[in-house]
Design a protein around this nucleic acid. Structure first.
Length: 953
RNA sequence: GCCCUGGUGGUGGAAUUGGUAGACACGCAGGACUUAAAAUCCUGUUCGCAGCAAUGCGAGUGCGGGUUCAAUUCCCGCCUGGGGCACCA
């Protein structure tokens, strides 16, 4: 990619040229623009950030979640994580590690395709342009990425291997016996010997066949059965279908049941879809969480997503018809519940509007209402169905029969029950479940109380500790214990069984879109046939139009040659490439394998992975599953991709508003708004608002003079804006471009300021206000070395004990803070150090040199320059990290805060070696303490060595 | 609605294991240097009350309660900002 490095003509390992600050010349100020240009050129030329796959040093792999190259370019939120990872990479490198720190682009995706539909520009072209912009912006900041390893998921050289891995998943099933992915051939061999007795079919658990039956099946039947086992399989699923646009829409393209573009109605439509059988990995994904360092919140989110629960599946007999003459329906109603102990409290059943029994059990008198209700639900998204506080539902006219007492329970349909979870049917226990309770109240269904005084008639109580009543043979039993008793009875009666359930569903793995990886699959007589490996990559073809194909198919269905070859017309989703890209960085140019096994054995897991929590359950679960599958199949030697995950917070935009008096051209300053007037708030560009004060001229010139004639009502001659925190986005005019800040203050200032803003993990709105402070710090650092008038002021003198104390305290603090990713406090420690050295007028090389090495990860350009100015040859990147020595920082005494009844009254300097008795006598001998004691005797004196003293009276 | 997470001066934040709340910055105020400005340096800056002042007293980490010698930190209830909820990435 970059033709530099040992092979290039421009390669000069240690020749560092072009310093405009030669000693003896007048220019001795911190000229960050020239310094940064000079060192970025040097790093590029010398291949300073090239990483080798073989080294004697221990390895360390630091990875950022790669960006989607959007058309809007980089804003100040993007680099936050990259700066953190850059600091950590450089820190590890200085500490003697061989550090892999690559970057690439998640380049397939919906926005590029949407842009293509609207502007007719090929997504590959716009993506390329966007990547070039991103790259330029990233280069500005001085990152240590090894760009020779850059990858793009939309590059055929990359997606060849995405397709290849897909084929491995297609050719595998999850063996519940060995608890891992195995090849389909093994499954077929087992079928031929024993039928599927040893292998429950995950796609259809009721499927049973013998070896003889298997052998008698035709090829199509066999393939259909195997499809129900494959880790990548084809099935049918619902999508958001918009008839008017003739296309499938993403969830966030649907707002309130209509399309975001055009506001056309959107309904659910069943389409053939590819899926990944991630549910088979549910337990391992759960177990694996214990072996990796994810934050507690992240672990919890993933656990909740997987949603493992223990309960029972119960079959209820259904009766239909009018009262007194009800007859059994053919099939039972299968219900999943985690609380079988509440079975005598069931007052109604609720089934999902998609439930397959609806047609069969709806009574004639209810048919019209049911049809209407289902039509209504079709227009609603899963999210809306669960979020809505409004309670909706419809009675089917049929009843389920309680197997223990024969009670007939009405069966309702309601949208809050989702078809995809459990059996799509629940038993409603209003006294124990809040949602059931609201449902019963709303529809006036009588409530049975089985928990006595634990239920107050107003609110459900989900306790497991109540003693059951109104519960037949369970009366007097604690609920917790009743669970097993009921399951035992159900099993004995043959109408129920213990069941582990997962909330997680299989991952939908196809999109009816153009800009994604084509599936290497042909359809022959309804059977999916994989392409041979030799035909990979299957290239994405050129299309005339990016709009959808017939019947909800993707754009590829519009290409006659594609369809003639019977190729799959779906493409893979955005997360396909990101599920394994971290492996490709290790061996990015390998044309024979996705990643050489020896290489992946060397680099192994990503040691530190940095990215936002918004990927908590999508990307991070999929990539964990792919890693486990590749591990099971023997392609890699580890089954968790990320050893440690650090979630950077989101940088939000801070939007500025002006207020236009309704129907006028008068803009009123925020402080002059009147309650009884109506105003239209309008977002203005944050870049011409200083704090909240707006630059009136800039506003008038904005958007080609749209507001040139604006009138203002000012406060003290100034216009103040309103402020709101929201997502940073171009359309909200609240984006801040890092390029501008780098231009104005330099990359080193920008990097340190992003870190100084607060803990990386915390979300916060961007505010450029404080950046000057960090810039001043770097200038102050510079002045320890050079004086504007005198030039060089640093010298070779020996450091004093006081200076060594400052230095070693800083070493300890920086190492500790960097190690625990507390970059903001590390920046402040640098400031303290420079402030103290300035106060002491310490310009001594032995001290300053050590400080520069520590500063290198944070401010690499200025560190390189000053390192060179100190007369060092070569790069500070190759220096060795300072070693903390306790002896320089030892204190003999401490100024203890002395509290009386928890209130600090005075400070007393006491030796750190003092014992409790000594401390007590010193403290009680103190005049101020005596005054506060008011001649009372202390009850107790608490002395925590090195911390504080508290006298309890 | 469900899951996760945050709330500390005028502002960003610090306080690592329950032990001096407000480190370090921004901003602001006053001062030095300068013809002036920029840059730089110095002093002050949680709030309230008292005092000419040094200082003293009281309150204080979203709100209300609890545990403890001691709570920003632990527990219970509430208010509120942000993220996710399966086709945005």
């Amino acid at each position: 990619m970059n033709p530099v490095g040992p092979e290039s003509e421009n390669y000069h390992p240690h020749k560092i040229t072009g310093s405009p600050w030669r000693i003896g010349q007048q220019i001795m100020e911190y000229n960050f623009r020239e310094i940064e240009q000079k060192w970025q050129a040097y790093w590029k030329q010398s291949g300073a950030y090239r990483v080798s796959n073989s080294s004697n040093k221990p390895k360390y792999y630091v990875l950022d979640m790669f960006p989607y190259p959007s058309g809007a370019g980089l804003h100040v939120g993007h680099p936050l994580g990259y700066i953190a990872s850059d600091i950590f990479s450089r820190f590890k490198r200085l500490k003697g590690f061989n550090v892999l720190h690559p970057m690439g682009y998640d380049a397939f995706g919906l926005p590029a395709e949407q842009y293509a539909i609207e502007h007719g520009i090929h997504p590959a072209v716009s993506t390329e342009q966007n990547i070039n912009t991103f790259r330029k912006q990233l280069d500005n900041i001085g990152f240590c990425f090894d760009w020779d390893r850059e990858l793009r998921t939309s590059d055929p050289k990359f997606y060849k291997w995405t397709q290849w891995i897909f084929l491995q998943l297609f050719d595998s099933y999850y063996d519940r016996g060995t608890q891992k992915a195995e090849r389909i051939t093994r499954l077929v061999a087992s079928f031929e010997k024993n039928g599927n007795a040893e292998h429950v079919c995950p796609g259809d658990e009721s499927l049973h066949f013998s070896a003889a039956e298997w052998r008698s099946f035709g090829d199509k039947r066999k393939q259909d059965i195997l499809m129900n086992y494959r880790l990548a399989y084809c099935g049918y699923g619902e999508v958001n279908w918009c008839e008017a646009l003739g296309t499938v829409l993403a969830n966030d393209e649907v707002v309130n049941g209509v399309s975001e573009r055009g506001g056309f109605p959107v309904v659910k439509k069943k389409l053939r879809q590819w899926y990944l059988r991630i549910t088979e990995y549910a337990d391992r994904l759960l177990e694996g969480l214990k072996t990796i360092e994810f934050s507690e919140a992240m672990t919890e989110m993933q656990s909740n997503w997987i949603g493992k629960s223990f309960g029972a599946e119960i079959d209820f007999e259904i009766v239909t018809g009018e009262a007194g003459a009800r007859i059994p329906a053919g099939q039972p109603l299968k219900v999943y519940t985690t609380r079988p102990d509440t079975i005598f409290g069931v007052d109604f059943m609720v089934i999902a509007p998609e439930h397959e029994l609806i047609a069969e059990i709806t009574s004639d008198s209810q048919k019209k209402a049911v049809d209407e209700y289902i039509a209504y639900v079709k227009s609603r998204s899963d999210r809306e169905r669960q979020a809505e506080k409004r309670i909706t539902g419809c009675f089917t006219g049929s009843y389920a029969v309680n197997p223990f007492n024969g009670r007939q329970i009405p069966i309702w349909i309601s949208e809050y029950v989702l078809a995809g979870y459990g059996t799509g049917a629940i038993m409603g226990v209003p006294c124990g479940d809040e949602r059931d309770h609201k449902f019963a109240k709303h529809f006036n269904i009588p409530i049975t109380n089985i928990i006595g005084e634990h239920y107050n008639g107003e609110e459900a109580n989900p306790t497991k500790d109540a003693i059951l009543s109104n519960s037949d043979f369970l009366d007097g039993t604690v609920m917790r214990d009743a669970i097993d008793i009921v399951i035992g009875r159900l099993e004995a009666m043959g109408i129920g069984k213990r069941k582990v359930n997962y909330k997680m569903r299989d991952a939908a793995f196809s999109r009816q879109r153009y800009w994604g990886e084509p599936f290497p699959i042909k359809w022959k007589n309804g059977v999916a046939v994989p392409l041979p490996e030799s035909e990979l990559p299957l290239l994405l073809p050129e299309v005339e139009s990016y709009s959808a194909g017939p019947d909800g198919e993707g754009p590829l269905a519009n290409i006659p040659e594609w369809v003639a070859q019977e190729l799959e017309t779906n493409t893979m989703p955005g997360y396909a490439g990101s599920s394994w890209y971290f492996l490709r960085y290790m061996d990015p140019h390998n044309e024979n394998e996705f990643c050489n096994r020896q290489v992946s054995d060397y680099w192994n897991q990503v040691d530190l992975y940095i990215g936002g929590t918004e990927h908590a359950v999508g990307h991070l679960l999929y990539s964990r599953m792919w890693t486990k599958a590749l591990f099971d199949l023997g392609y890699i030697g580890f089954d968790e991709p990320f050893r440690k995950l650090l979630n950077q917070g989101m940088i939000q935009g801070s939007s500025r508003f002006v207020y236009r008096k309704r129907g006028t051209n008068l803009f009123v300053s925020a402080g002059k708004l009147k309650k009884d007037e109506e105003y239209d708030p309008i977002r203005v560009d944050v870049n011409f608002v200083d704090g909240t004060e707006m630059d009136l001229t800039a506003f008038k010139n904005w958007r080609n003079g749209e507001y040139a004639d604006a009138q203002f009502e000012l406060e003290d001659g100034k216009y103040f804006c309103g402020v709101e925190t929201e997502k940073m986005s171009k359309s909200k005019f609240n984006t801040v471009n890092p390029d501008d800040l780098v231009q104005k203050f330099g990359a080193d200032t920008f990097r340190m300021y992003e870190m100084f803003l607060g803990p990386v993990e915390q979300s916060k709105p961007w505010d450029t206000k404080g950046i000057e402070g960090v810039h001043r710090f770097l200038k102050k650092l510079w002045r320890l070395f050079f004086d504007e008038n005198k030039g060089k002021i640093w010298d070779e003198a020996q450091a004093s004990p006081e200076e060594l104390k400052i230095l070693h305290r800083t070493i300890r603090k920086i190492e500790e803070d960097t190690g625990r990713y507390s970059f903001n406090t590390a920046v402040s420690a640098f400031m303290i150090c420079v402030n103290e050295l300035s106060d002491l007028k310490c310009n001594k090389k032995p001290v300053l040199e050590q400080l520069l090495i520590m500063l290198t990860p944070y401010a690499p350009h200025i560190s390189e320059e000053l390192w060179q100015q100190l007369g060092n040859t070569g790069s500070v990147l190759d220096a060795s990290y300072p070693v903390f020595e306790e002896k320089y920082v030892i204190e003999s005494s401490k100024e203890y805060p002395v509290s009386i009844n928890g209130k600090v009254r005075t400070n007393i300097d006491i030796s750190l070696s003092a014992t409790q008795d000594e401390v007590e006598s010193i403290v009680l001998g103190n005049e101020l303490v005596q005054k506060w004691l008011e001649s009372k005797t202390p009850k107790k004196i608490i002395f925590v060595k090195g911390k504080m003293i508290n006298i309890v009276v």
